[in-house]
Amino acid sequence: MRKIIKDQKVIEDQWVELSDEQCAETLPKGKLIVPVSAWQAHKEQLIAHAEPIGILLAPDEQPADIAEDLEHFALVAISFPKFADGRGYSSARELRTRFSYDKEIRAVGDVLRDQIYLMARCGFNAFAVREDRCINDALNAFNDFSVNYQADAVEQKPLYQYR
């Protein structure tokens, strides 16, 4: 089973990512992550699924598009097709601060150790680190800094509120 980082620990991943096509067929057992388009097309069937459902947001899909359905999702996965695409950072931040989403937010795709520190500050608490990289090494990223200037999804106040 694939390993991921969740809440700063390496664990075995229990979720399965489905494509649009797979969502149109009989759903497999287990915890399922589905694309926004599939969710919109097969909402009733997915709500009826016996185990938790998660949603996958592409970088150009906005949290506002799924805001009304957030209660149905035990997880929001945000995809990073490229390491340097920073749109998903805003998505996570909005989910946490604007929509008060408090369950798992997972970074998937081109996710490397070097993004993790800032991603965590934006509200990600799970990281599907690229499988060709050492996941245990990626754990070190949480210690990159001990001070931050800004408020973020975890820390409510900027440094200047503490000075």
Binding site: Y89, Q115, L118, N148, Y149
Partner: peptide, 13 residues
């Protein structure tokens, strides 16, 4: 200070 390692805006377009 605000812009230094801003968590959300490190990888802009």
């Amino acid at each position: 200070q605000w812009s230094t390692f801003h968590p959300e805006f490190a990888l802009l377009g």
